[in-house]
Amino acid sequence: MNAIETAAPAPRKRASAGDVLLYVWAALVLVVLLYPLYFIVIASFSDPSAVGNGLVWLFPRGFTLEGYTELLKHSNIWIGYRNTIFYTIAGTAIGLAVNVSAAYALSRRDLFGRKTLSLFFIFTMFFNGGLIPTFLAIRDFNLYNSWLVVVLPFSVAVFDIIVARTFFQTSIPNDLWEAAQIDGCGNLRYFVQIVLPLSKAIISVLGLWMAVSQWNSYFNALIYLRDKDLYPLQLVLRDILITNQMQSNMGTGEAAQIALRLANLLRYSVIIVSTIPIMLVYPFVQKYFNKGVMVGSVKQ
């Protein structure tokens, strides 16, 4: 295939009007997608009054790191950061353990009661008890205001189970299990020693999905946590970016002006600092994300 391509390169066609339009469109899309993010980056390094007066468009004006030094003074941000790192690691580990093992069991055609069990899982995608009954259940189990509530009760992800199950069905040949069985290997040992090492691709995809959604989520923490010390980063961000924004519009006078200036700076820098971990890993992992969506789209 490659040899043929190099031997006879496809004749380069002149770009048609359609092509030109296509790339103009693509360029516009890129600007629309990237500019808001770029604006936050340059605004975070700029003098807030320059930003407020509309002087910051392409490059930072009145370069300053004040936003970032201000950030260091807010201990709740760092507590939130620490909590989120912990929740992300614990949540991903628990999520992987629970979902990958369930998916493997459901992928086995000789599992007795497989249809009923699958229905038991899939039904929860379309029907649930709702906020208050769930809240009451969490309280019954004494999980309210405990860090466990963020990582354990809602770790079953049926969509992820379906994706992993499809992967196991299509890429782990059944002969392998039959051979292992003849050698006297039980289900658990087979799963740990043979299936898992063959499934690194799907495990990393699901792990990354879980990690990103855990990093970004705030709902469970909002509903089930009361102690500020347990708050994940996103809830702290909500205070800084949204709740305070509503209040800061009210004050006048010099003190209010200074507070507003700092609040604005803090807003830009905190967006950068909280989003950077994801943006840093993102280019390396996006092709796996891509693959995962495709595995999931294979109809069972």
Binding site: A105, G129, P153, V156, F191
Partner: peptide, 24 residues
């Protein structure tokens, strides 16, 4: 062994998804 692998997910769903369905 397969049922053991299913157990954690089933227990979690029973406690935090099916119990609230009754709670409705």
């Amino acid at each position: 062994g397969l049922y053991l692998l299913l157990l954690p997910a089933v227990v979690l769903l029973l406690c935090f998804t099916y119990k609230p369905m009754y709670g409705v």
